[in-house]
């Protein structure tokens, strides 16, 4: 079993209201000077055949029209 972590984020240039909301909340907590917050998703999984991962990401985990993804293999 290969362990992997898939990071999925909104594509550059697409408005990310969640990121904006987080960014706006930070100064209220005293965290100044934080910009360009983007909120994505992280999926952890274990696969028999890691070669399947790119296809699986394109078909289901990410929507390639609006999201970029990165696959990170984790050594056990």
């Amino acid at each position: 079993m290969a362990k992997a972590r898939v990071l999925i984020r909104p594509k550059e240039g697409i408005l990310d209201p969640q990121g904006k909301a987080v960014e706006r909340a930070l100064p209220a907590l005293g965290f100044e000077g934080v910009e360009h917050v983007r909120v994505g998703r992280m999926v952890e999984l274990e696969a028999d055949d890691p070669a399947q991962l790119p296809a699986l990401c394109e078909k289901l985990l990410a929507n390639p029209l609006i999201e970029d993804f990165e696959i990170e293999q984790i050594d056990a």
Binding site: P10, Q18, L65
Partner: peptide
């Protein structure tokens, strides 16, 4: 849209 029967995608409302 997800099934590619229609073009484009639907995202979280701008207002959240």
């Amino acid at each position: 849209c997800e099934a590619d029967l229609l073009p484009g995608a639907l995202l979280l409302n701008e207002s959240m």
